[in-house]
Design a protein around this nucleic acid. Structure first.
Lengths: 148, 148
DNA sequence: TTATTACTATACCAAAAAGTATAGTATAAA
DNA sequence: TTTATACTATACTTTTTGGTATAGTAATAA
């Protein structure tokens, strides 16, 4: 199982906004603070913008700002903008050998397992906000209680 | 977040053994039952063999068998044989831009988050066996209770 | 003993993800 | 109005993962 680079760096960028004095960051600032190349930072911010999480101001004194305060932005939105979930409808498309449908249609043992993992992760990220993560005060038992 | 192809297909192969009449399967059998090419099935079984989960018998009436009964093989062993965990020591190596160490050394917000997800997954797979998965009788609340 | 069937190993090709290069458009300050 | 600074878009290169091809070794049944 893997975290993708987009998820890793994209989330790091979002966290930067929480700590930014006036909530505004330019690409050069993001790039240098996270040690990313400028075009790559641009690529990440475009993804976040298309998902409606940040808005961009062009021109000389431009930059990016969060569309909402950090405590109103859920991790689920951020991660959805940067990649796909651990297990979803796309999964069987990807891993089916037969042309039309998965060989394990209707009785997919591994799918059930991945589904459980995904279910847990979704239940966490739909309740945890960007502010929670940026504060650095999350703890494990808190997260496992979150799902009810 | 993604499940790798090795994890997907490798686990499917392990499940096959649970259902095999005498517990023995040849590569051609595995290949045809899972719809994988013969060399690819071979690659998967070599990984599982190197991890000490199956043993191979060469020659005309050869094949593979599980090294232990399915209820004594834990998912953790299988998944470890097929790939790396969602979050571990390798993570910061991979995603550090600066040459020597990660830029977020000692205060990695995203690392904390991934760590929690990983912690949950590990707590499940170290207690669930291949037999549990093959039986298809797992359920979500059972899995969330398993971690204590 | 020989042919068949099976595992084993290595090299190779293809596709997707990761990351870079470059050229352009918009805006505000000088 | 010009220039500097910032966002935007597209094409390209590199690396990793996914998957194939092929040649070889081992063991058994005829």
């Amino acid at each position: 199982m893997k975290i993708t680079a987009l998820e890793e760096y994209g989330l790091r960028c979002m966290i930067l906004f929480s700590a930014a004095p006036d909530g505004r960051l330019t690409l050069p600032e993001i790039s240098s603070q996270e040690g990313l190349s400028l075009p790559y930072a641009g690529k990440l911010l475009m993804l976040l913008k298309k998902a409606g999480l940040v808005k961009a101001v062009r021109g000389r004194s431009g930059g990016f700002v969060l569309i909402r305060p950090p405590d109103e932005i859920y991790l689920k939105e951020i991660l959805a903008a940067l990649g796909s979930s651990l297990y979803g409808s796309h999964h069987c498309d990807r891993y089916s050998i037969d042309d039309e449908s998965c060989r394990h249609q209707g009785d997919c043992k591994v799918g059930t397992l991945w589904g459980f993992f995904n279910q847990h992760i979704q239940s966490v990220i739909e309740k945890v906000t960007l502010a929670d993560v940026a504060d650095g005060k999350l703890n494990y038992s808190q997260l496992t209680n979150i799902q009810t």
